[in-house]
Simulated assay, not measured.
Amino acid sequence: MTAGLNTIIYPVKDLAAAKALFSALLGTEPYVDEPYYVGFKDAGQDVGLNPNGHAEGLTGPVPFWHVSDIKATHAALLAAGAQPLQDIRDVGAGRLVASLKDADGNLIGLLQDPTG
């Protein structure tokens, strides 16, 4: 089960330039501003900038589906023919993410927030 597409992450090469661009676009400062990730909130969406994204195999913006069981969803997508890009990993405070691609090369992100 998903809670929809609530996050999109852009792989960026120049984090400072991308932060300036998205600050101008969204009219706000980031709520997270770290060397490994910059995050904005806008209209119920999380917009993230990942300076390591290209090295992790991300070739463009990745929509992240928020799911309640990342392991089961990941396994179901693999069984349906998806190819893994990033294995499931904790990116801090129990938030789990993974990324895959479909047969057409489209990127699919999965995100599970920690349970209460």
Rank of each mutant, 00 (worst) to 15 (best):
Ala24Gly: 13
Val47His: 08
Gln45Thr: 00
His66Ser: 08
Asn50Trp: 15
Phe40Lys: 04
His54Val: 01
Lys19Gln: 15
Ile9Cys: 05
Asp33Ala: 02
Ile8Arg: 00
Ala18Gly: 14
Leu5Cys: 12
Asp42Thr: 10
Leu21Thr: 12
Asp46Ile: 03
Asp14Ser: 12
Ala17Arg: 11
Leu21Ser: 10
Val38Trp: 09
Asn6His: 07
Ala80Thr: 05
Tyr31His: 12
Ala76His: 10
His66Glu: 11
Ala18Pro: 13
Leu25Thr: 12
Phe22Glu: 05
Pro84Gln: 05
Gly44Val: 09
Ala17Cys: 03
Glu56Leu: 10
Pro30His: 05
Gly81Phe: 07
Ala79Glu: 03
Leu26Val: 02
Leu25Ala: 14
Gly44Lys: 10
Leu58Trp: 10
Gly27Phe: 09
Ala3Asp: 11
Asn52Phe: 11
Ala20Thr: 13
His66Ile: 08
Pro84Cys: 06
Arg89Thr: 01
Lys19Arg: 15
Asn50Lys: 06
Gly27Ala: 04
Asp69Ile: 08
Leu58Asp: 03
Leu21Asp: 13
Val62Phe: 01
Gly60Ser: 07
Asp87Gln: 11
Val62Leu: 03
Leu26Lys: 04
Leu49Val: 01
Asp87Met: 06
Ala75Tyr: 03
Glu34Ala: 11
Ala79Val: 00
Leu25Glu: 04
Leu77Lys: 09
Ala72Trp: 02
Gln86Phe: 01
Ile88Asp: 05
Trp65Thr: 00
Pro63Met: 13
Glu56Asn: 04
Ala3Ile: 01
Leu49Glu: 03
Gly81Gln: 02
